[in-house]
Amino acid sequence: MSTNTIPTALAEIVGDFQAVDERDRLQLLLEFSRALPELPERLKDHPEMLEQVVECQSPLFIAIESEPAPEGTPAQAGPVVRLFFSAPPEAPTTRGFASVLHEGLDGLTAAEILAVPDDMPEELGLTRLVSPLRMRGMSAMLGRIKRKVRGECPLG
């Protein structure tokens, strides 16, 4: 994976996972699961605005919104992307993956998100600790975000 296309915040998270012993990575993922922000009220009351990521073993829903990029941002970078996730507390792996993506990608431009390598979830070093199905779920989350960004936040 080319780390020069990973946004700074996400690269720091990947570095945090790689810096701890393999057995401690699940604990770190659990810490991320506790940090997943709640949905804003406008989304809590409107589940139809959320989209289920059916590839995830546990129920995970996302909403993606865009807002104009700050002054001085190149037009080709596209709008700023806001990410919102909903996952049950009894699904800490799913919540942890969602929280990693939220912390690493929320508030970035469409171009920055689209540049994230598809294999980024594997860089967390969890492939031997969680089931392949759960790893596919995190890859599906990233893929869904990128598809939505391509469709709803066209570049250029």
Score class of each variant (00 low, 15 high):
Met120Arg: 04
Ala87Cys: 15
Val116Ala: 07
Ile113Ser: 08
Glu112Ala: 15
Leu101Lys: 03
Met138Ala: 14
Val116Ile: 06
Leu126Gln: 08
Pro89Thr: 13
Phe97Arg: 00
Gly125Leu: 11
Gly137Trp: 12
Val130Met: 15
Arg128Asn: 14
Glu103Arg: 15
Glu122Asp: 14
Arg134Gly: 11
Leu101Thr: 02
Ala91Asn: 10
Gly125Gln: 07
Thr93Cys: 11
Pro117Cys: 01
Ser86Gly: 05
Thr109Gln: 09
His102Cys: 00
Pro132Leu: 05
Val130Glu: 01
Met138Pro: 00
Val130Ala: 03
Met135Asn: 03
Asp119Tyr: 02
Arg95Asn: 06
Leu108Ser: 03
Pro117Met: 05
Leu101Glu: 01
Glu122Cys: 00
Gly96Val: 10
Glu123Ala: 15
Gly104His: 02
His102Met: 00
Leu105Val: 05
Pro92Ile: 08
Pro132Cys: 06
Arg136Gln: 15
Asp106Phe: 02
Ser99Asp: 07
Pro132Gly: 09
Glu112Trp: 03
Arg134Ala: 12
Gly96Phe: 05
Asp118Tyr: 01
Val100Gly: 00
Thr93Leu: 15
His102Pro: 02
Ser131His: 05
Ala110Thr: 07
Leu114Pro: 06
Asp118Asn: 10
Ala87Tyr: 12
Leu108Gln: 13
Ala91Phe: 13
Pro89Asn: 14
Ile113Lys: 10
Thr109Trp: 05
Pro88Thr: 14
Val100Arg: 02
Leu126Glu: 11
Ile113Cys: 05
Ala98Val: 03
Phe97Met: 13
Gly104Val: 06
Glu90Trp: 08
Leu133Arg: 13
Gly104Tyr: 01
Glu122Val: 04
Phe97Cys: 14
Val130Phe: 09
Pro117His: 07
Arg136Asp: 14
Gly107Lys: 07
Val100Cys: 01
Leu133Cys: 00
Val116Lys: 09
Ala91Cys: 12
Glu122Trp: 04
Thr127Asn: 11
Pro88Cys: 08
Gly96Met: 10
Gly96His: 03
Arg136His: 14
Asp106Leu: 01
Glu122His: 07
Thr109His: 03
Pro88Gly: 14
Pro88His: 13
Leu114Gln: 10
Ile113Phe: 04
Pro92Gln: 11
Val130Asp: 03
Glu122Lys: 05
Arg136Cys: 01
Arg128Asp: 13
Gly96Cys: 08
Thr94Ser: 15
Gly137Ser: 10
Leu126Pro: 10
Thr127Lys: 12
Pro88Glu: 15
Val100Ser: 03
Leu114Glu: 08
Pro117Trp: 03
Arg136Ser: 13
Phe97Tyr: 12
Ala110Val: 09
Asp119Cys: 04
Leu129Arg: 11
Ser131Cys: 11
Thr127Leu: 10
Ala115Thr: 05
Glu123Phe: 02
Met138Trp: 15
Glu103Asp: 09
Ala111Val: 04
Glu122Pro: 00
Leu105Thr: 04
Pro132Ser: 06
Ala98Asn: 08
Pro88Asn: 14
Pro89His: 13
Ala115Phe: 01
Thr93Glu: 13
Glu112Phe: 04
